[in-house]
Simulated assay, not measured.
Amino acid sequence: MADKLDLRPTKKLGQNFVIDAGTVRRIVRVAGVGPDDVVVEVGPGLGSLTLALLPESRHVVAVEIDPVLAAQLPLTVAERGLADKLTVLAADALKISAADLGGFAPTALVANLPYNVAVPVVLHMLEALPSLRKGLVMVQAEVADRLAAAPGSKVYGIPSVKAAWYADVRRAGPVGRTVFWPAPNVDSGLVSLTRREPPPTTASRTEVFAVVDAAFAQRRKTLRAALAGWAGSPAQAETALRAAGVDPSARGEQLDVHAFARIAEHKP
């Protein structure tokens, strides 16, 4: 199909296509997609995962930024008699909203995500599509570790905290390099997402995320120092931290999302 389309996978779009049937079946199985699910798939590419999702779900909304691939996917699916279960959006996944999905309210995000935009896409989808209840994404192994990291881990950081605002996140298994074309130079991993309510707080998501960004901007600094700009001064940062029940000498990687929400509530 790539030859027919004169397609050359590009690094710019993070195109590494899944070519192993066992892997796409595994993704659909682990995702737990069923006949009541409307699935949003980001970056369907040549359609291998799409073809595995369609028989198991009620409908698939595929978001593809490459116009050539977006035009080909309905043809590929129609050849297998599944065209009525597919909607293709030729769009940038980072810019779509619920209103763009043609009346569909997706319940599951299942995707082989381009490595270069994996974290922004996951966070944007969780924010823009509140109907999402679960997800399974394939990402670079290092990104999978970061998304699923717990406080205190060496790789715990901004993606870990922001993902935890929306969902329980966990690693759901490794993926080797040989299942892709072209084969990437890094290993991949599956990440499972289960939507839950954000922490109970009077602060908005934007306010909480501002604290998170400030706390990790200078990882080695104590929160008293790291949040000085956010609070107005180190002393004001210390006052806010103590009011939130957080040790001012702690560092951002020690706090869970609930602690960041408490800090945000006490901005001077």
Rank of each mutant, 00 (worst) to 15 (best):
D168P: 03
A163R: 07
A148M: 07
P184I: 14
D168S: 11
E197A: 15
G135K: 08
V122C: 08
Y166S: 00
I158N: 02
T206C: 03
A164W: 02
F209P: 01
V161L: 08
R146S: 11
L123K: 08
V122L: 12
T202Q: 10
L113K: 11
P120T: 10
V186S: 04
T206R: 15
T202F: 06
S188E: 04
S204E: 08
A183H: 03
S160I: 03
A148K: 05
V122S: 11
W165E: 00
I158S: 02
L123Y: 02
W181F: 14
A167Y: 02
R177S: 09
R195C: 06
G189V: 08
N185P: 02
V143G: 09
L147R: 13
L132K: 00
V155M: 04
K134W: 03
T201H: 00
R171K: 14
P199D: 05
R177A: 09
S188G: 08
L132C: 01
L193M: 11
A150D: 11
I158R: 14
V155C: 06
Y115K: 12
G135P: 05
V169M: 02
R196H: 15
G189R: 03
V169G: 02
P198S: 05
G135L: 06
F209Q: 01
G152A: 13
S131H: 03
T201L: 00
R177Q: 07
A144N: 05
T206P: 02
V175F: 13
L190Q: 12
V179D: 02
G173R: 10
V175H: 14
L113V: 10
V169Y: 00
V169W: 05
E197I: 01
F180R: 12
A141L: 09
V139L: 06
V161C: 02
